[in-house]
């Protein structure tokens, strides 16, 4: 006997439908999927951090290769990213209220903060006394900050794309917020990783 439930949820699904989904008959699970992916992405960083801490614990640096990292630039960068998480959030709530003008302004500010972060990161790279292949410490430092920098680069590009798409008549609107919400989730993740990175690589 296979009878089916006339699900109360199916009515609820209809209201959750967004314009972007065309073929799916179910609520939008894409943000959940992105969150799952970010768990995996976070594990890559976890692996790198574990390697870095082990290297530091068991591989002593050769004489003359002990570095005190300057704290000024990375601390400014931490502030930049934290503020950018906040501005991105403002952009998201502006879009929810259908205030596109305001949303786009916050997006532009967020992207600028991201690009400033990258510029400061590059400036730090050029001022450091060690290079990628000088020793284990340098290699690990560049690998981890570089991998995070790639994330920021990708995120900034995505913000600029959304900024373009949220113009009048673009595909991002208060009806279709998925691209913005996905990028926002990703951006918060990248910021969170930076805070951990800052703690482990600079403060510890």
């Amino acid at each position: 006997m296979t009878t089916s439930l006339p699900g109360p949820a199916s009515g609820q699904n209809a209201t959750e439908h967004s314009a972007a989904e065309s073929t799916e008959h179910h609520p939008d699970h894409r943000l959940f999927g992105l969150a799952t992916f970010l768990v995996a992405d976070g594990m890559t960083f976890a692996g790198f951090f574990a390697a870095y801490l082990t290297f530091r614990a068991v591989n002593p640096l050769p004489e003359g290769a002990i570095y005190e990292l300057e704290l000024l630039l990375p601390s400014i960068n931490t502030v930049l990213l934290l503020v950018s998480s906040f501005t991105f959030h403002r952009a998201g709530s502006a879009l929810k209220r259908d205030d596109r003008q305001l949303c786009r302004r916050w997006l532009l500010i967020t992207a600028t903060l991201g690009l400033l972060f990258l510029a400061a990161q590059l400036k730090e790279y050029f001022s450091l006394p060690f290079g990628l292949t000088d020793n284990l410490y340098g290699s690990t430092f560049y690998a981890i900050t570089g991998f995070h920098g790639l994330h920021v680069t990708l995120g900034s590009l995505m913000i600029l794309i959304i900024w373009w798409q949220s113009r009048e008549g673009g595909r991002v609107s208060s009806q279709n917020r998925f691209p913005l919400e996905a990028t926002e989730l990703y951006w918060h993740f990248v910021d969170g990783i930076w805070v951990v990175l800052y703690g482990i690589l600079y403060l510890l």
Partner: peptide, 9 residues
């Protein structure tokens, strides 16, 4: 999800 990314890195 928890282990493959570590191998990739």
């Amino acid at each position: 999800l928890l282990s493959t990314p570590v191998l990739a890195g």
